[in-house]
């Protein structure tokens, strides 16, 4: 029950952050908030027993994503323009979508229901938990599933990351620094050349 309470509090906190992001005009603050959001999310994942997910979310959501967002902000601008009127159409779409989703949750197994079909499926969930030690032989079931049972998905995931790099490379490219920008760097280069000559 404490667990449930913690999650509820944290989730409510997330909602507050999310609305903060909607309303704030300062993009820098929004980015920082989304970093906090990810960190909170990681905490929730820990409580939900998804330690690997939490780990990743902390590293990616709070770490790398924030750095990229900050990088993009320094290259563009920090303030969001004041929007003249609220977008009621978007509000309608979102409300409908949300209502549909909530309607769908009504038949979901309750949170933490160990007997749900998803958690009891003999060939998936239970197979991984019961047989992976014999079949794969490593303690972390998530890694077993990730790298062996569903290794093909992970291959796809790796390719996605690779694609993103190709995409960003093709868009931004690696532009060479001009020398005068960093005299110290220049000195180092020379030093290195000398070393090679020696």
């Amino acid at each position: 029950m404490t667990e449930q309470l913690v999650i509820m509090v944290l989730l409510s906190f997330l909602v507050v952050i999310a609305f903060g992001i909607i309303l704030l005009k300062d993009l820098l603050v929004a980015v920082i908030l989304s970093g906090i959001y990810s960190l909170t999310a990681a905490a929730i994942f820990v409580v939900m027993d998804a330690v690997d997910v939490a780990f990743t979310e902390a590293a990616v959501g709070a770490g790398v994503s924030t750095i990229f967002l900050l990088g993009a902000l320094t290259l563009t601008r920090r303030q969001q323009k004041q929007q003249k009127h609220n977008n009621y159409f978007a509000l309608l779409v979102v409300t409908l979508t949300g209502a549909l989703l909530i309607y769908g949750t009504l038949d979901l197994p309750g949170y933490g229901d160990g007997q749900s079909i998803a958690n009891q499926h003999p060939q998936l969930a239970q197979h991984f938990l019961q047989k992976s030690e014999d079949e794969i032989g490593i303690p972390n079931v998530v890694t077993s599933v990730l790298a062996s049972y569903r290794g093909y998905d992970t291959l796809g995931e790796t390719v996605v990351v690779f694609t993103a790099a190709i995409g960003v490379l093709s868009l931004l490219g690696l532009r060479r620094r001009k020398r005068e920008e960093d005299p110290e760097l220049d000195a180092k280069r020379q030093c290195r050349q000398q070393n090679e000559e020696v």
Partner: peptide
């Protein structure tokens, strides 16, 4: 990939 992405963003001048 992550280092490349960082390079890409940081080597771009506004």
């Amino acid at each position: 990939v992550m280092i490349t992405l960082f390079y890409c963003f940081s080597s771009t001048r506004p």
